[in-house]
Amino acid sequence: MIELLLTPLHYEYMIKAIVVSGVIGGVCGLLSCFVTLKGWSLMGDALSHAIVPGVAVAYLVGLPFALGAFASGLLAAVVMGVVKSKTRIREDAVIGIVFTTFFAAGVLMISLFPSNISLKTIVLGNILGIADSDIIQMLAISAVALLVLVLKWKDLLLFAFDPNQAQSIGLNTTRLNLMLLILLAATAVAALQAVGAVLVIAMLVTPGATAYQLTDRFGRMMLLACGMGIVTSMLGAYISYFLNGSTGGCIVCLQTLVFLMAFFFAPKYGIVAARRKARRTTDALLISGDAHPVPALRGL
């Protein structure tokens, strides 16, 4: 039995997949706290799709994939900004138009000019078959993103919570906004090969949303989300060996499972706790007889 459980670890590609998934899951988890609280999940989804044409071009001309992805993500962000400022179309519609255009262009390019990266890899991820050069790019991106988050999380927190206060104590909020956007694009690039363009957004939202159910302290929320990202990603990669199924699918399903547990059973904000609290308050009022919930009607 134990021998069976350890089989995945006998393969180098499995160990690589588990470790890389864990690293990316952790960084995505940290960033997901800002994404959830700032309401940037649509933006995250958009960026993770908008990087696809960049990846396609990079593979076609033989550049590092991260470079192409990053350039195309930022180009998409700029295009969104321009379209929004020049029309009266609402922001979510602008994001919708721009990212689908980019994604479509990417899909078209890959299908027209087959290279050594398949459409399936980009859309669904392929962490098990990942090349070492790509692993190095992913780890480098993760390391930089992690460093920035560790050094700047308090400034980013203030920016997310109260941008006016951030500005009024002399912080450069334009730069903080850009920093958060670049972090988002960078992690989306790193996560692309792990879970695929379609599921990147789950890694960038679910851990944060789950941790938000569990705590009222931002510091704790980051630790919880990061831990959840690491554990679910490593476990997801590990389990996918036995299921012989998509690694991205495994990771995201595990994250959803944890989210559902928090949704129902979180000590303070869970459905069960809320219901129990409502019942207890009502009971207390009924037992104390005279205490009508409406003070003016007490003793009637």
Binding site: L37, K154, D155, L157, L158, A160, F161, D162, Q165, I169, L171, Y212, T215, D216, R217, F218, M221
Partner: peptide, 14 residues
């Protein structure tokens, strides 16, 4: 937002 009263006041000291 997941911040405490003390967190907010400390933001004034950033």
């Amino acid at each position: 937002f997941p911040v405490s009263v003390m967190d907010v006041v400390l933001m004034g000291r950033y």
